[in-house]
């Protein structure tokens, strides 16, 4: 036995591991009276690398770099597509050092998981970005326009297999359901197949396993440029730059749908605190760095605060609730 050598090996192991632990970001002290130097906590409702995570970390980085506030302590509160994080936010009623990134998918998840931690109970702070959904088909699909798809779908609602990159209540699920509803197909008849994100969905489309895919277009750029996938329409208010496809409204379908992401604070915080948080996000939104972050990630700017965001949240909540209740998921 060489106890000393064993110990050296152990120390080396521990040193290596603490390095890893450090990079993963550990908790620290919080709170300071100087508002420019205070610590804020930011909850992120999914794992590192996901959409909420990228949005939240980009925003926190801009705010830190521009010294709008002190450091952020970012926590990925993973579970049930955001429901767990929303519950935590609800439990933190009155905490004045906390924000949470959320979006359309979290609104849906709260309903599918039958949770009481609904967005309307929280303090709305700001809507940051949005992403349009696109209607994708393989290159040699018989559908040339949205109207081809609509006609076929109306004729045989269950015969069109629709794939999306999210589970029930997620944006890629809500979009085809609302689209079906708009064109007069019962959402309960839609044959929706859920894939685990953009990668598997791309595979299914390229292999022509499904008739049509609905998803944000960021992950499909390569295939669209190559001409292996075609975009029939995009779901937003205006056409998407670089994508040769009409909006749904232009094509005669009366639906505008976007997957948005924003920030909430716990319920029961003071008006000053709410104004402070809204203030730093507004300042963050006006920076050049945020502009760059939007461009790099392919997000569209759709900033809103105060009453505008509050009304938007109420409207979205009702719309999602309607869709999911009709489907029997809520």
């Amino acid at each position: 036995m060489h106890p000393r050598r064993t110990r050296t090996a152990l120390v080396a192991l521990l040193a290596a591991l603490s390095l890893v632990a450090l990079t993963s970001g550990c908790g620290v002290t919080r709170g300071s009276d100087d508002p420019d130097n205070r610590r804020l906590r930011l909850f992120i409702p999914n794992s590192p690398g996901g959409g909420y995570d990228l949005t939240g970390r980009a925003a926190a980085r801009v705010m830190e770099d521009d010294e709008l506030t002190g450091r952020f302590e970012i926590r990925n509160v993973v579970g049930a597509s955001g429901t767990v994080a929303m519950q935590r936010l609800l439990n933190e009623e009155g905490s004045d050092d906390l924000m949470m990134v959320m979006g359309l998918g979290v609104v849906g998840a709260v309903y599918t998981n039958h949770s009481d931690a609904t967005p309307l109970k929280m303090t709305p702070i700001a809507r940051l970005v949005e992403e349009q959904e696109g209607i994708l088909v393989p290159a040699d699909s018989p559908f040339r326009t949205v109207n081809d798809l609509v006609a076929a779908w109306k004729k045989d609602p269950g015969g069109i297999t629709v794939g999306g990159g999210s589970g029930n209540g997620g944006p890629d699920h809500l979009f085809p359901m609302q689209l079906a509803d708009t064109i007069g197909v019962a959402p309960t008849d839609v044959n929706y197949i859920s894939y685990d994100g953009g990668g598997p969905l791309t595979t299914a489309l390229l292999g022509e396993k499904i008739d049509v895919g609905m998803s944000g277009l960021g992950e499909f750029e390569a295939q669209i440029d190559e001409g292996k996938l075609r975009v029939l329409a995009v779901s937003g208010d205006e056409r998407l730059e670089g994508i040769d496809a009409p909006t749904l409204t232009e094509a005669g379908v009366d639906l505008v749908f976007t997957n948005w992401r924003g920030v909430l604070a716990p319920p029961g915080i003071s008006d000053e605190q709410r104004d402070y948080l809204t203030g730093i996000l507004t300042e963050m939104h006006d920076t050049e760095e945020w502009r760059e972050a939007l461009a790099t990630n392919g997000w569209s700017d759709n900033f809103a605060t105060g009453k505008e965001f509050e009304d938007f949240l109420v409207e979205q909540d009702a719309r999602v609730a309607d869709t999911l209740k009709e489907l029997g998921f809520a």
Partner: peptide, 10 residues
């Protein structure tokens, strides 16, 4: 490795 990469993205 997935989480490590995500955290190293910056």
């Amino acid at each position: 490795p997935a989480m490590a990469l995500a955290l190293l993205l910056p």
